[in-house]
Amino acid sequence: MSLLEAAREVRENAYAPYSRFKVGAAVRGRSGTIYKGVNVENVAYPEGTCAEAGAIAAMIAAGETELIEVAVIADSPAPVPPCGGCRQKLAEFGRSDVPVTLATTEGARLDTTIGELLPGRFDVSHMDKC
């Protein structure tokens, strides 16, 4: 199963009763294992969880800390990019050159990288003390 197929499959499990905007995400860990996530809404907006954050949490829960590929899919007119918070989360666990596929359920696709999604990212190098 491809990463995009995994994201498409899991998207159906999203909990989006308020917006009805289901998002599925999948990340591939360094081991090759695919981890999936969906958006989970809450009536007390904005207390929901993004699909990308869910996939990353599944990866971390399994004991991996590096992702090497990302796919995100939604039923929208154009591919939906991760929110700012999820861009930073992806950057925490993936290098700048990690490929990211953004897609729609109708087949539109945008291929990018973590670095292109979050140029000038805040990373561990900013924490080094002189």
Rank of each mutant, 00 (worst) to 15 (best):
Gly32Phe: 07
Gly32Pro: 11
Gly32Trp: 10
Thr33Gly: 09
Tyr35Gly: 05
Lys36Met: 09
Lys36Asp: 08
Lys36Trp: 07
Gly37Cys: 10
Gly37Leu: 00
Val38Asn: 06
Asn39Phe: 02
Asn39Met: 11
Asn39Tyr: 06
Val40Asp: 12
Glu41Met: 05
Glu41Lys: 12
Asn42Ser: 15
Ala44Leu: 11
Tyr45Phe: 06
Tyr45Pro: 12
Tyr45Ser: 04
Glu47Thr: 13
Gly48Asn: 09
Thr49Ala: 02
Thr49Gly: 08
Cys50Val: 11
Ala51Val: 03
Glu52Lys: 10
Glu52Trp: 04
Ala53Gln: 15
Ala55His: 13
Ala55Glu: 05
Ala55Lys: 14
Ala55Ile: 06
Ile56Pro: 05
Ile56Thr: 00
Ala57Phe: 01
Ala57Cys: 10
Ala58Val: 11
Met59Gly: 03
Ala61Glu: 14
Ala62Asn: 02
Ala62Trp: 01
Gly63Leu: 09
Gly63Trp: 07
Glu64Trp: 02
Glu64His: 03
Thr65Pro: 13
Thr65Gly: 04
Glu66Cys: 08
Glu66Leu: 00
Glu66Ile: 14
Leu67Ile: 15
Leu67Gln: 00
Glu69Asp: 14
Val70Ser: 13
Ala71Trp: 01
Ala71Ile: 12
Ala71Pro: 00
Val72Gly: 06
Val72Pro: 13
Val72Ala: 00
Ile73Leu: 12
Ile73Phe: 03
Ala74Pro: 07
Ala74Met: 10
Ala74Thr: 12
Ala74Ser: 15
Asp75Asn: 15
Asp75Ser: 13
Ser76Gly: 05
Pro77Glu: 12
Pro77His: 14
Pro77Cys: 11
Ala78Ile: 15
Ala78Tyr: 09
Pro79Ile: 10
Pro79Gln: 06
Pro79Cys: 03
Pro79Ser: 01
Pro81Thr: 14
Pro82Arg: 00
Pro82Cys: 07
Cys83Ala: 04
Cys83His: 06
Cys83Glu: 04
Cys83Ile: 11
Gly84His: 09
Gly85Gln: 00
Gly85His: 08
Gly85Cys: 03
Cys86Val: 08
Cys86Thr: 07
Cys86Glu: 11
Arg87Ile: 04
Gln88Ile: 07
Lys89Pro: 02
Lys89Thr: 13
Leu90Gly: 04
Leu90Val: 10
Leu90Ala: 13
Leu90Tyr: 07
Glu92Asp: 03
Glu92Ala: 13
Glu92Cys: 08
Phe93Pro: 06
Phe93Arg: 00
Phe93Met: 09
Phe93Ile: 01
Arg95Val: 02
Arg95Asn: 15
Asp97Thr: 15
Asp97Met: 03
Asp97Val: 06
Asp97Ile: 05
Val98Leu: 00
Pro99Leu: 10
Val100Tyr: 04
Thr101His: 01
Thr101Cys: 11
Leu102Lys: 10
Leu102Ile: 11
Ala103Trp: 01
Ala103Phe: 08
Thr104Met: 01
Glu106Gln: 12
Glu106Leu: 04
Glu106Arg: 14
Gly107Thr: 04
Gly107Asp: 08
Ala108Lys: 15
Ala108Asp: 00
Ala108Phe: 02
Ala108Leu: 06
Leu110Val: 14
Leu110Gly: 03
Leu110Asn: 08
Asp111Arg: 12
Asp111Ile: 04
Asp111Ser: 05
Asp111Val: 13
Thr112Ser: 02
Thr112Lys: 07
Thr112Gly: 08
Thr113Gly: 05
Thr113Lys: 14
Leu117Ile: 11
Leu117Ser: 03
Pro119Arg: 02
Gly120Ala: 01
Asp123Val: 00
